[in-house]
């Protein structure tokens, strides 16, 4: 359904783009219908940039992204609208995702004006109520200002915003990292339910436990390059790349305490990032980057 083919990104800065920095290196993966894929990486890994490129909020410098066999970089006007009807995003900060001076219901009115102008009032109401029910919110919630709602409620509203459209793919960029533990799981479970109904999700996160909970497949990004990719069982159950292992080792577990030596290993952080190399198939559904 979505194919990200050898995509790279170069950011330019300085006077008239004199300085260049390559932040994404030949990222290549695919998302199938009804599949949840986690893009996992630390800050600076480029995971958010990949998400924004798929949403066309950031342009692609090399390679191409296709959705249902259509190159998304060529989309304009009606074509782009039709793309956004099928592919939507939710971002990290729920409070920044709403215009603070308007009531939250305005977001839905905008959606109707931009995409569903031909729908009559009754059909629109039905669609809106359906989407809000799916995320466990009442229509009355639309009459509030963003600061009157919790982060979790706002994120669910944004998911409802996407559901009002006929979306096939949702890019969820760190959508629960700013939420409290008790509401986090509700939003995660909601994504799980939507997946069961056939929605594809790209779940961008730095939290391995969250990625593990919800995903069919895992992509580990380091400094803009994929270092390991495969089904969740394979990548988390039998990590091959040293970077993946070091990430998994650093995840704190509730019921298992690090040993003193492990905890106090405060040696200088070795920069393990290595460029170059290529992905090889370690076994079925499990790719690992090797360096020659």
């Amino acid at each position: 359904m979505l194919k990200v083919e050898n995509v790279s990104k170069v950011f330019r800065s300085g006077a008239f783009g004199g300085k260049k920095a390559k932040v994404i290196h030949d990222v290549d993966f695919e998302v199938k219908p009804g599949e949840v894929v986690s893009l996992i990486g630390e800050s600076g890994s480029g995971k958010t940039t990949v998400g924004r490129m798929i949403l066309r909020l950031t342009s692609v410098s090399g390679g191409r992204i296709t959705f249902e066999d259509e190159d998304i970089s060529t989309l304009r006007g009606a074509g782009l609208k039709s793309y956004y009807r099928r592919v939507q995003g939710v971002f990290q900060d729920p409070f920044s995702s709403f215009n603070p001076i308007f009531k939250v219901g305005r977001v839905f009115r905008t959606i109707r004006r931009e995409f569903l102008g031909d729908l009559d009032a009754a059909a629109w109401e039905a669609r809106l109520t359906g989407a809000l029910n799916a995320v466990g919110l009442e229509v009355a919630a639309l009459d509030k200002f963003p600061h009157q709602m919790s982060g979790g409620q706002l994120q669910r509203l944004l998911i409802a915003r996407a559901l009002v459209l006929d979306i096939r793919l949702l890019i969820a960029d760190e959508i629960i990292s700013m939420l409290d533990a008790s509401t986090r799981i509700d939003v995660l479970n909601l994504l799980g339910d939507l997946k069961r109904q056939g929605l594809s999700i790209i779940f961008v996160t730095h939290d391995l436990a969250l990625g593990n909970y919800i995903s069919d497949r895992i992509i580990i990004l380091q400094k803009g390059a994929i270092v390991e990719m495969g089904t969740t069982d394979r990548v988390f159950g039998d990590p091959q790349h040293p970077y993946t292992r070091s990430l998994l080792d650093a995840v704190p577990h509730l019921h298992e305490r690090w040993s003193d030596a492990e905890l106090k290993d405060l040696g200088l952080v070795a920069d393990t990032a290595r460029f170059g190399g290529h992905l090889i198939e370690h076994r079925k559904d499990h790719l690992v980057r090797v360096y020659s």
């Binding site: 949403l55 909020l57 956004y84 995003g89 971002f91 920044s96 995702s97 215009n99 931009e114 944004l158």
Partner: peptide
């Protein structure tokens, strides 16, 4: 740089609409 501008772009809103409907009122 606020996310609601990104959201407006995901609505396919025009540049003028984003500037005068989302940014200017703020």
């Amino acid at each position: 740089s606020r996310d609601f501008v990104g959201m407006a772009r995901l609505n396919g809103e025009s540049t003028l609409r984003i500037i005068f409907g989302e940014i200017a009122p703020n």
